[in-house]
């Protein structure tokens, strides 16, 4: 089986190859790459285990998902790929359905496991607000799969992949990207954080988030939030949003401050090893989803906790 891989960044493509190879052992993984291809990127691909890199020199992503989807479909056809691995990011979810529609293959996104069987590829994904796991049979080739690429890139120097230049003469409906309004905060990698302090509607004002930030600083933790904080209130940037339509995180510890625990948020923290919550409402759903649930006022508890931890941990 030949697998064509395309993530929105080289890092994601490499992670998809590593994660894909774990489930589909012995298959050939090729990467579709657009834009410049510096040696370090080629090394990254080689280290991950890619056999061939198909390169299109133009940067297509700004023209929108239809352009890139059509290019992927075209390349998959030319390379006889039976599976196409995409990232389960927002970008991946815009292009995946189009690729499946063009190739008339089966499509599934946010897949957490893949298994090759005689009747197709069996995948698992969360549905119904993330509270249930569906086992699905993708019965028709090609299999277009959005994979949760949480694996690290398999390190080491692999064989340098072969590079094949493709010219993309693709016709597809375009969108024009006018501007990207980046949040002022620097990029956070919540998916890899060991300790996350999550903030929710229990905070009454944006300024009060400083309480959580102080605590996070002492703990060396990252800050994440529930949807209202980044969405409706815009107190935090979207890259800190944990939940069904945001990030899925897997820290050692998740400390939920003023988070009620709607199912959409819970799905994002399901893989946390330890969940501790502080909430003033003893009936909040987060209480039964925590290992330790503190019933109390975060405005009183958090400053005291920060102080105690500062003493215990000997940090500023």
């Amino acid at each position: 089986m030949t697998v064509l891989v395309h993530g929105e960044t080289p890092q994601l493509s490499a992670r998809l190859v590593t994660a894909g190879a774990r489930y589909l052992q012995g298959e050939t993984f090729n990467i579709l790459h657009t834009g410049d291809l510096p040696p370090e990127t080629l090394n990254l691909y080689g280290g991950a285990g890619a056999s061939t890199v198909y390169r299109i020199s133009q940067e297509l992503s700004a023209a929108g998902p239809a352009m890139i989807a059509t290019t992927i479909a075209m390349t998959a056809r030319e390379t006889n790929s039976t599976a196409i691995l995409l990232s389960s990011t927002k970008y991946g979810r815009e292009i995946g359905p189009r690729v499946a529609e063009i190739l008339q293959g089966s499509y599934s996104t946010e897949c957490t496991q893949l298994e090759k069987t005689d009747s197709g590829i069996v995948v698992r994904r969360l549905v119904l607000g993330g509270a249930y796991q569906a086992k699905l049979l993708m019965a028709r080739e090609p299999y277009v799969i959005g994979l949760q690429a949480i694996a690290d890139v398999a390190g080491g120097a692999g064989q340098a992949p072969r590079v094949v230049e493709l010219s993309a003469k693709v016709e597809a409906p375009r969108i024009e990207l006018v501007e990207v309004q980046r949040p002022e905060a620097s990029h956070v990698d919540l998916e890899r954080a060991d300790f996350i302090v999550g903030v929710g509607r229990g905070f009454k004002k944006k300024e009060d988030l400083a309480l959580a930030e102080e605590l996070a600083k002492v703990l060396g933790a990252e800050i994440g939030c529930s949807r209202p904080i980044s969405g409706d209130l815009k107190w935090m940037s979207e890259d800190r949003h944990i939940g069904l339509s945001g990030k899925r995180v897997r820290p050692r510890t998740y400390l939920a401050l003023g988070i009620s625990g709607q199912v959409q948020h819970l799905v994002g923290i399901r893989d946390a090893k330890l969940i501790i919550s502080v909430n003033i409402d003893p009936n909040a759903p987060i209480m039964s989803e925590s290992d330790y649930a503190v019933v109390g006022d975060l405005y009183k508890i958090v400053p005291l906790l920060t102080e105690k931890l500062r003493e215990r941990l000997g940090r500023r």
């Binding site: 499946a100 008339q104 293959g105 089966s106 499509y107 599934s108 069996v122 969360l126 549905v127 119904l128 993330g130 509270a131 249930y132 796991q133 569906a134 086992k135 699905l136 049979l137 993708m138 019965a139 028709r140 399901r270 969940i275 003893p282 209480m287 039964s288 989803e289 925590s290 290992d291 330790y292 649930a293 503190v294 019933v295 109390g296 006022d297 009183k300 508890i301 005291l304």
Partner: peptide, 24 residues
């Protein structure tokens, strides 16, 4: 093209220890 084989609730067992007391 995609068939549902199985659908089950995910069970993550948490310890559910409730802590109460003064803020201190």
């Amino acid at each position: 093209y995609v068939q549902l084989l199985e659908l089950k609730a995910l069970k993550v067992e948490r310890r559910r220890q409730k802590l109460e007391g003064t803020p201190e």
